[in-house]
């Protein structure tokens, strides 16, 4: 039972990171039907910026939690700027082009950003300091859930609740939903659609950067390539839940994380990816639109 709970909490932790990144894929897809393949790289850049900032702060004698918060804030700002710029230079000029063109542009940006970090930083793995402090109160539960896992779960839950509230109640959130449902009509009620798309990229990038900082601190090492696998997994999570569907991305991330953790724990860690993608194949056979994806019925 204890082993099960341990796997469960580590599965949830992984899953919530996948979910954070998957939200960026699904929001962008929902609005402009583009798979933003460079999204994983934004996550990677977030982790790198946090590493650099924490290195500097450590030299100046800051400690633990304060570094984490500050590094996360800087990483989020950086990632937001990257996400915004990415959309401006790689996707906006292709608005109205056939769907394949921005997709190829996305793959190009992904390769470009990976190689940029490779050259500007290093091809090797860099150690990432454990920024998340060890809480004493969690000591009795340490065999089930660690401090880092608890922080990751809490931060990602808060981020997702904040996102949901933003989309449901705020003015920009309503504009995002309207644009997703009918971009043409959104323009006719006076929504600046270009701005909505920019905001969507910025929000997705912010969530990815939060994920990057948390994972860096949790796993303890990063390199230029971490965005690729995380991106593929998160994309899988988004498809699993029903691409374009926000609760679906969260559910998909959790299902993926849990099935990976249980496969690794009960079978062999060599099989975790086999299991993760096996679940994807199975769900897509049974429910092609994803877990929460649905063909919306509409009267005409």
């Amino acid at each position: 039972m204890e082993y099960f709970l341990q796997l469960f909490s580590s599965g949830l932790t992984r899953g919530s990171i996948y979910a954070l990144i998957a939200l960026g894929y699904t929001m962008v897809y929902g609005i402009i039907q583009l798979i933003n393949f460079a999204h994983g790289e934004i996550y990677m850049i977030g982790a790198f910026v946090a590493l650099i900032v924490s290195g500097v702060l450590t030299i100046y004698g800051f400690s633990g939690a304060s570094i984490l918060v500050f590094a996360a804030v800087v990483a989020v700002i950086y990632a937001a700027a990257y996400g915004y710029t990415l959309e401006r230079i790689a996707y906006r000029p292709l608005r109205g082009a056939p769907r394949l063109s921005p997709l190829i542009s996305a793959i190009g940006m992904s390769i470009f950003l990976q190689n940029y970090v490779l050259l500007a930083q290093t091809p090797d793995f860099l150690p990432f300091p454990a920024l998340i402090p060890e809480f004493e109160f969690i000591e009795p539960l340490a065999h089930i859930i660690g401090s880092a896992e608890l922080v990751i779960l809490t931060v990602s839950t808060i981020s997702m609740i904040a996102l949901t509230a933003l989309i449901k109640y705020s003015r920009i959130g309503k504009a995002m939903r309207a644009t997703q449902q009918d971009m043409h009509m959104a323009r006719l009620v006076g929504i600046d659609v270009d701005r909505v798309i920019s905001v969507t990229f910025v929000i997705g990038s912010v969530l990815a950067a939060i994920g990057g900082v948390l994972v860096g601190s949790y796993i303890g090492q990063i390199n230029f390539y971490i965005g690729f696998m995380a991106g593929i997994k998160a994309f899988t999570a988004a498809v699993l839940g029903g691409i374009g569907n926000i609760p679906g991305a969260v559910l998909g991330g959790l299902v993926l994380g849990l099935s990976e953790a249980f496969a690794a724990g009960y079978i062999s860690s060599a099989y975790e990816d086999v299991f993760a993608f096996g679940v994807l194949v199975l769900i897509l056979i049974l429910r092609p639109a994803g877990l929460l994806g649905r063909a919306v019925k509409q009267k005409v």
Binding site: K174, R177, A178, D182, H184, L188, V296, V300
Partner: peptide
């Protein structure tokens, strides 16, 4: 302000 052809109501709102 335009009311477009086919009404274009936001269906999931």
């Amino acid at each position: 302000v335009q009311v477009p052809e086919g009404r274009r109501i936001f269906p999931n709102m």
